[in-house]
Write a protein that binds this DNA or RNA. Sequence first.
DNA 1: TAGATTGTTAATCGATTAACAATC
DNA 2: TAGATTGTTAATCGATTAACAATC
Lengths: 219, 219
Amino acid sequence: MAASVPTRTIGRLSLYRRLLGNLIADGVEHVYSHQLATMGGVTAAQVRRDMMSVGYSGSPKRGYEVTALAGSIGNFLDASHSEPVALVGVGNLGRAIMAYFAGRRPRLTITAAFDSDPYKLNRVILGCRCHALSEAGAVIGQLGIMTAIVTVPASAAQDVADQLVRAGIRGILNFAPIRLRVRPGVYVEDIDMTMSLEKVAYFARQNAETRSIPEAAVI
Amino acid sequence: MAASVPTRTIGRLSLYRRLLGNLIADGVEHVYSHQLATMGGVTAAQVRRDMMSVGYSGSPKRGYEVTALAGSIGNFLDASHSEPVALVGVGNLGRAIMAYFAGRRPRLTITAAFDSDPYKLNRVILGCRCHALSEAGAVIGQLGIMTAIVTVPASAAQDVADQLVRAGIRGILNFAPIRLRVRPGVYVEDIDMTMSLEKVAYFARQNAETRSIPEAAVI
DNA sequence: TAGATTGTTAATCGATTAACAATC
DNA sequence: TAGATTGTTAATCGATTAACAATC
């Protein structure tokens, strides 16, 4: 139905929508591609191409209408109804993420939590009931959950992913530092914080080395 | 000095090193490109190319020597000495990240924390002293910190980034949902959890829609 | 040796960028 | 109108993939 859109474009659309939300809050009514580009750290041509892919047209005079564009992106990105999300692994990181998403995107709500710790079972943590993973099939099936966040240790992640996929999950946001193997038709997005931090440290060092003398002058 | 290597390659090197660590723990001595490829979710050719970029050679007979390769990658990725990291924003997410990195990469240790909450000042949280942001210049300069993690709200992130760059930071791992504007020579890596989750939800829905009938048969 | 793997080049692929006529 | 912006195509760019001779 929807033309196939590259995964990076989907990410940028999510970004634009947030920017548009800010503009709406500020009472702005129209925006040009180059303005969105500056705010989003992309090029103006890229913004225009992305708008094309959601099928929204701007006008050469006033650019894009902010509320209408936000609506178009919403139609493109969102489900027709509010969507529940599952989270597996109610440790430090899991709880922080639950708190982070609480009330942020009303259309994506963490509705079910799972953990292997028997002490946490059936307790309500951050407004969300904590189940045993063995109940995943039943709970996920009953609530019609398609999206899950995995915040368990690497050693448990593949097993958890297998159970989630069997339970009907079609998309996983994976924080475990391991590459999950899932069957085709299940989308996995990895957030590997260790990898990201090592990358930042590497380039920080490169930057410091290559411009150690000029930088003092530049500042 | 080091040939310029694309940022994705640096990420993969970090990944390989972790995989090699697991192999070493398992007592494995040699590994072939296709084995690393399977574990890392990349292609064998890509692995071989990446090994070339760190200047390590394998043998057609035994593949790559695990410990030596891990050492080469370490030489390439790591600083000669242990590196301190700063974290700004000691909220739920910030504390979870501090706990996450504690003891994980001994060469990258979160050594200084910053927060605007006066209640947290000078307290030691997860083994790390919490300073006021106004001290950033002094603390970061004194400890020689080049890398920082930003876990403040979006509204404060740009201001924090500016202060960090002024204090000498050359690389930022940014969790705030906003595009930071920094001068050239400062590397920024974004972890935008909302964007990632929306992306996963989008593709989960696509997957569920496109294969709603066949999937039952496939399972 | 025979066979599988490596290093390395050439071909492919996809996304980004540049460019510009159409438009308000 | 004049001028800036849009929609859209063509050119560019970079990374990935395929391929294969060299090697152990």
